[in-house]
Structures are given as C-alpha cells and as structure tokens.
Design a protein around this nucleic acid. Sequence first.
DNA 1: CATGAATGAGACTTCATTCAT
DNA 2: TATGAATGAAGTCTCATTCAT
Lengths: 230, 230, 230, 230
Amino acid sequence: MAEHLSADKDTEQWALELLALGDEEKMTPKQVAILQAAVDVFAEKGYAGAATSEIAQKAGVAEGTIFRYYKTKKDLLLSIVGPTMSRLLAPFVMRNFGNLLDGSFDSYEDFLRSLIRNRLEFARKNFKILQILIQEIPFHPKLREQFMEDIMSKVFERVTAQVDHFKQKGEIIDVPAPTVIRFTASSIIGYIMTRLLLQPDKDWNDEEEIGLLIRFIMHGIAADPGNRGV
Amino acid sequence: MAEHLSADKDTEQWALELLALGDEEKMTPKQVAILQAAVDVFAEKGYAGAATSEIAQKAGVAEGTIFRYYKTKKDLLLSIVGPTMSRLLAPFVMRNFGNLLDGSFDSYEDFLRSLIRNRLEFARKNFKILQILIQEIPFHPKLREQFMEDIMSKVFERVTAQVDHFKQKGEIIDVPAPTVIRFTASSIIGYIMTRLLLQPDKDWNDEEEIGLLIRFIMHGIAADPGNRGV
Amino acid sequence: MAEHLSADKDTEQWALELLALGDEEKMTPKQVAILQAAVDVFAEKGYAGAATSEIAQKAGVAEGTIFRYYKTKKDLLLSIVGPTMSRLLAPFVMRNFGNLLDGSFDSYEDFLRSLIRNRLEFARKNFKILQILIQEIPFHPKLREQFMEDIMSKVFERVTAQVDHFKQKGEIIDVPAPTVIRFTASSIIGYIMTRLLLQPDKDWNDEEEIGLLIRFIMHGIAADPGNRGV
Amino acid sequence: MAEHLSADKDTEQWALELLALGDEEKMTPKQVAILQAAVDVFAEKGYAGAATSEIAQKAGVAEGTIFRYYKTKKDLLLSIVGPTMSRLLAPFVMRNFGNLLDGSFDSYEDFLRSLIRNRLEFARKNFKILQILIQEIPFHPKLREQFMEDIMSKVFERVTAQVDHFKQKGEIIDVPAPTVIRFTASSIIGYIMTRLLLQPDKDWNDEEEIGLLIRFIMHGIAADPGNRGV
DNA sequence: CATGAATGAGACTTCATTCAT
DNA sequence: TATGAATGAAGTCTCATTCAT
C-alpha cells in the first residue's frame, strides 16, 4: 500500500523518531502483548468503554498481570498515548528542522511535501494510537494539557518560523502566520484523515494526491489565477 | 459575539431546519431537562463515562424517570445525536439548494460564503451535541452507518452537483469533484473547529475570517499566482 | 443478667445519651440490617478481614445496597464507631456532671459507683462496637485523632476536676490527678473487660463486685492499713 | 531512657527467658530480615491489612522467599507471636518462681516490684510483637486458645499460689485470689500501657512510678486509711 | 536457595435498569 | 406519571501463593 512513499530521504531529513520506541525492546513478551491488546481495545471501544478483562483476554494474560505492569487502567492509557505524543512532536524539534542554511527546503512546497510524506507515514504506522489520542484528549485534563502546552505550542513555534521565512522570501501571501498554518494544517489533516479513516480501502496514489494537495494549498481551487480580492 | 453574521438572509436561503426540533414542543418539562442535562454530561464525560444518575441529578428528576422516556441509556444518546444529525444534513437537502436557475449563487465563492456562515451558526448553536456526535460515532455502528450512508452520501451528492456546475462554468480547476470537496471541507471544518473548539475565547471577526478562508480555498497561500504546476 | 444494676437513678444523673441513636429511627429496615450485620462481621473478623459481601449476605441485602447508604467500606465503619465514640463521651460532658452544688456526689466513692454502673451498662449494650473501636483505633488515624483529641482530652479534663475537688476535700491522697485517674481507670476498665470479655458467662453479682472494686481503688489490697510509705 | 531499671538482678531472679529466642541463631539473615519486617508491617497495618509484598520489600527479599520459610502468611504471624507468647509466660513457670522457702520475696510488695520491673522491661523489648498479639488474638482461634489455655491458666495458677501465700501471712485482704489478681493485673497493665503506648514520649521516672503503683495497689488512693467498709 | 513473573480468586465499588409504591 | 430503593452484573484492582528459572 502506497509504496510510492519514498520515506527514505525524508527519514534522513527528519531524523529518527524512534527514541521513545526503543523501550519496547526491554519489555517482556507479555507486556508487549498487553500493550498491543490495549491499543486494539481502546481504539475499538474507547477508554471508558474498554474493560481490562477484555484487554487481558486479548493479550492472552491473566487480568492481574496487567496491573503488575501498569498501576491503573489510566496508567496503561498514558503509557500508550504519551510516547506517541512525543513522537508526534519529534520531527518538529529536530535540530535540522528548518535549518535552511543547508538548503534543506528550497521552497514552502518542498517543506510541505516533506512534512506531508513524513507525517502521513507516521499516521499510518500509529493509526490506532492517534485515534485513541484524539478520542481521549477531551476527557483527560493531563493529556489535554500535555498536548496543548508541550506539543502544539512547540509545533506552532517551529512552523511559524518556516512560514515567516518563506513569507519574507515572497513565496507566501502576507497574512498572519497562524492563519496560514491553520489553513495548511486543515488541508493536510483533512487529507490524512480521508486517506486513513474515511476511505482507507480506496486505491490511493499518494504521490499524485500529495501533489494535488500542495497545489491546492498554494493556489487553491480557482481556475482563474486572477481576481484574488477578498 | 460575531454579530457580523447576518444569518437572516442565509436562514431564508437554507430554510428552516427545525424539523426534528419540532418535537421538543411535545415534550414535558422533565423530558427537556433530561435532554439538556444529558447533553451536558455526555459532552463533559463522554457517553461511556457518563452516569445516568448524574444526568438525573442535573436534570432534577429521579433516576427512574429517565427510563420512562428512554428505554436505555443508548436510546437517550440516540435521541440527542440523531435529530442533530438530520439537521446537520437539512440545508443540503432543501429543494432550493443548488437550484441555480433562480440564481441562488452567482459563484462558488457566494455558495461557500453562504455555506460557511450557515454551518458555523449551526455549529455554534449545537456545539455540544456535535462534540458528542464526533466523539461517539466511532463506537456506535448504528450511528456511524447513519452518518456515513444517510448524511455524508447525501451531502456529497448535492455538493458534487454544485462543484460540477461551477467547474463547467470554468470557475473551478478541473480536478475530480471529490478532491475539490475534500479540500473545501477540510478548510471549512478546520476553521469552524479552531473558531469554536481550539480558540473559542479569541476575539474573532468572523466576516473577515470567512473572507480570508474563501480566498484561501480559491487561491491558496502563494503570493505569486503563476507557476501553478504540480 | 446483672439485673442488680439499677440504672434508673444513674440514668437520671448522667442524663440521656441516646441523642446520636435517635437517627436510627429514620433508617430503612435494610439500612438497620446492614448496620447490625456490619457490627457482627467487623467484630468477628476485624475491619480489614471483613468482606462487604459477607456483610451484605448477613444483612439479607445485595452487596450494592450497602454502597447506596455508605459510600465506602470505611464510611460504614465510621458510621458505626463514630456515634458510639460520642456516646462514650456523653456522660462526661453533661452539664450536671460534677455539679457538686446540688450534692450530686457526696464522695469520690459515690462518684465512682455512679460512673462504674453507668459505663458498665453502656459497655454491655455496646459491647461489639467498643470491641471494634478498640481494634481499629490503631489503624485509622482519623479515628485515633478523634478518640485522643475529642474524647480522651474531654474526659480527662472533667474527671480531673472531680479528682481535684475531692483531693481538696481531703478524701484523696495528694498525688497528681493524672496518676490517680490512671489508677482508677485501669481498675475500672480491668473490671469491665473481665466482666464482659474474659469471663462473660460467670455468674456475676455486679453490685458486690462494684463494691469490692471501689474498696480496692480507695484502700488497696493490703490487710494492714498502716505502713503506707512509698 | 529509664536507666533506673536495674533489670540485672531481676533477670537473674526470673532467669533467662530466651528459650524460644534461641532458634533465631539458626536462622539465615534473610529469615531474620523477613521476621523483623513482618513485625513492623503487622504492627503498623494489622495482620489482615498487611501485604506480604510489603514485608518482602522491607526485608529486602523477593516475595517468593517468604514462602520458602513460611508456608502461609498465617504461618508467618504464628512464628512471630507464638514464641513471644511463650516468653510472656516464661517467668511464671520458672522453677524458682514462688519458691518462697529461699526467701525470694519477703513481701507481696517485693514480689510486685520484681514482677513489674521485669514485665515492663519485657514489654519494652517486645512492644510491637505484643501489640500484634493483642490485636490478632480476637481473630485467630488458635491464638486465642493458646493464650487462654496455655498462658493465662498457667500464669493464673502460679500467681494464685503467691497471693494465697501472702494472704495467709496476713499481708493481703481476705478476698478471693482471682479478684486480687484482677485488681493487681489491671493496675500493672494500665501502667505499662500508659508508659509504652499512650505516653511513650513523656519523661518517665520508672522507679518512682513503680513505687506509686505499688502503693496504690496496696493502699489505694484514699487519704484516710480508716473507714474501709464496703 | 532465591527469585519475581504470573496467576486467579476475591476484594471493593459503580451503575444501568427494574419495580413496588 | 414519577419516584428512588434495590438490584446484580460487571468493572477495576489487590494480593497470597505458585513455579520455572
């Protein structure tokens, strides 16, 4: 599926984000099974609707075993979504992000292409966990705070720098960066959600779609480039 | 807040969507109280995390009273989100929607402006219920089916007609309608969610923002209208 | 058993201490059953060793019913021992306690006799609850604090006044009141515990025993009244 | 603290009571650690409220190790309180106890002084275990039987002999021995509990207090030695 | 001997639902 | 119609005990 995605180059550009995942190797097989089962059940039923007994059963483990590894059910949730939140943020805090001196990105379009490829791949790999994250953020203050303060603010700061840079270069219209970002993010998220959630079974040509997506973000859907008044 | 939104004209254009709401008048005060309390609690805690006892308490009725009106807790949920789903669809199925012969919309931009104003107003009025709807759709097959088959497909069909019309008029780029719709919807939903969910307290100038939003949808964020290759 | 105890006069002297018990009449039969069953099981197994399921079974009630009346198991414990603690204290805070102007007690011996009769009767009626109280005080800080600060300090204060009064009258040896009280209390508690706990089935003649007890407290066990040096 | 207690002479008189303790030397360090940790945790939380896992952690051993030495948790409890119960009894069954022919005790007062000093010292050294013993006796039939039948009856028998002896010598009032013993024991236990449990931090002068205690036991608290009628 | 991962019975507690009043 | 006491199934979590290493 979507082998068009040559994530290799991008992976270099964004660097490894597997830090948080490294711990998984220190886990016992049972713990891994619990984690995977929990992801499945949380995604299917939601946190509040998921029973630890079902998780245990799916993991092939006694219910008590879950609580040897995770003090509470909420602990289990946090140890699933917490690391993924960090890795969601990871590429935005890489040192070489936006290091324009080395010519990383020649244009906002290049930046977008790299960003979309990379985060689409990430979303594909962490689909269920992201689903859980989105579902549960409203109901867990700690999660919400971490997401808003640690993640969003950092991402926003970094992307703002990029936008401002290309605004100065004259590539982007002179509109407040937050508005540009909102528009860009909406479009990308809309694509990723359609791609993975609404129509996952459609035969997607990702490279082509990403091309269209970038074209849309940059130039909109109007046939006539003129008459751009508000 | 946002008095700029002269919803009057739009309301006429889209017509009343109070169909499902008419029932409310046949409700006893207790039933109304139950419904309102349920909306509050469901929105705050999620369906699975909400206790009927809390709903009863907030509604000022006995626990048993809830089950006089709604056979089960899930019934209560469906009585809340079901009608709102219909009303979400309502404007798209009005007879005069897309009746372009009477010159309803001179341009795609006009259509967008009317759509955005109208649905933003709707989202504002039904904020909590929409929140509940979005949260619970993944966990209730019936809800999901109704949403995907009854709502989305209908909306899609009607909007596709509009898009095709303006494509033929040469206003819109020659790209498959679903793609155009996805772009458009993403942008609009992104704006509405930012407006109501992420930054509800910001001092928004809706008319201005809607103008920007339409400008984005039509022409993107590039400063240079040329060089539109993919 | 022990009909010798003419508690009537004493009851007048100490006044009613049934205040806290009055609430019991407002209880549903199930709640009373739960309370009684809890007293039995707590007394037999200890708080930590008692299962709410057993209490429910003994009360002829569903386990969930317990938690309609008492939020937690600990709540159930406290609602049992709390009121009894207050009533344990009650006679010591009566206004007429130690009101020597009306000639309540002509001598320390009279005071002791009244006190012993009254508290023995109280202990008999609340035997199991006192047992629970004593068992659980070490393990529940709140209980301990309430007991030490609210109960003991008040009792101590009142009894000290009595002791000092009779010391001034020359009835009691000139030794610090706390020491006198410790000696008196030890003797009385020792009697009550032997009477109710160690040898409850013995055929006791309470009036006679109380006479001996007072004689012992006042004059000890020496045959020879002389040679009283320390 | 309380260096006044020259326990040396008494220790000789009552002889070593380390019988049961001798086993400790055959224990592995881990076993000793387990025992000490168990004493701490049982005393703090009670038997039913104590977790073997906490004991293991405090002892610095694995949970499983406890069960190598003690088949069950109850076994562990009995291994702690059993020997201490025997040692509580020990001085009363020494051959030279009450061997009045060798002039061990010239008077009941001497006997009391020796007894109090000795058992106070014992209680101090075995404070926590005695606490556990008292707490758990009501809930463990085996423990209760052993205590009542093996310990109390033996102690009672021996002390009765002493009391009868001094009664014959005319030192003690002519009252049934059990009653005399109850008075005496209550006073002593009351002192020891106040000393170690209720006010352990007070600056006690034990020799002085023991003098007062004996004086109380022998002559009571009345200022006037006359008028000793019942 | 010692470990500690794993168990599973059973603890406390919640809550949707019923029903006599 | 409305109540709310009562239920009992199911949920989360604890812990004494076992056993392969």
